[in-house]
Design a protein around this nucleic acid. Structure first.
Lengths: 126, 126
DNA sequence: TAGGTGTACTATGTCGGGTAGTACACCTTG
DNA sequence: CAAGGTGTACTACCCGACATAGTACACCTA
């Protein structure tokens, strides 16, 4: 269900968060569907339970999931909407990146082609 | 000459590297122009000399600058070319970002507009 | 010779990430 | 009721990256 790279610069708990968010956005994890328990996921990924909890706790704070003590963690009703609104902030990263590439003399057409290709693939796979 | 944010998540030495690279790409630091000395820059930015040296050492390893012991550090002849080639790897980051935004349902036109605006501004300022 | 330059080295402190272990409260199931 | 699963909280510890502090060396120029 998850692919974790312990050698990555990116913290494990962030990798978990990103992958869970993508599962929600793709619809593979619908609203109210139950997430793997902290302990089971800990065993499956050979990761400390505290690391899993850190990821779950962050998602819970942001309203992506909700937890019921004694029962488990579940995807929030409007998780996808929250994520979509949150993703909009990534447009700033896009601007920063485009600015760097423009500065390096990489032609605008090259960036446009990149994006067009990505959206074409997404449009097909979805 | 430099703006350093000690509170940033990004390490100080990386901030230095990025700003120096941009000065080279914009042509404000031509080939063979001398960089501020480790000690003077250390005083100016209130940063430990070791941190400055770490940045310089990294740039030297990558062929962006060259150092002459007893004299100083200078911009390499083909620094701009090296940086432009290196920047091309950022296109992967662009793809990753576009993929995320596509997944979040942000329309392609919005990304295209972003990039077009950036390149328009760059075209004017240069 | 004096002062500036890059370079190297050790020691120290801080912080984030991660692990280890324990404990508690809750719910479901037998 | 008892057992086992669930989320949650807490302390302690380790490790690496980052940064600082201080010292020292070799080099070049004025």
């Amino acid at each position: 269900m998850f692919r974790i790279d312990p050698l990555s610069r990116q913290p494990v708990y962030e990798q978990l968060i990103e992958q869970l968010e993508k599962l929600v956005l793709t619809g593979l994890l619908p609203a109210d569907s139950q997430l793997p328990s902290v302990r089971s996921l800990s065993l499956e990924l050979s990761i400390n339970p505290n690391t899993i909890q850190k990821a779950y706790s962050d998602l819970d704070t942001r309203g992506i999931i909700y937890s019921v003590p004694g029962i488990g963690c579940f995807v929030a009703k409007n998780a996808a909407e929250v994520l979509q609104a949150h993703m909009r902030r990534k447009l700033d990263s896009l601007r920063q990146l485009a600015d760097d590439l423009a500065l390096a003399g990489i032609p605008e057409e090259e960036l446009i082609d990149c994006i067009h290709t990505i959206y074409k693939e997404r449009g097909v796979t979805l």
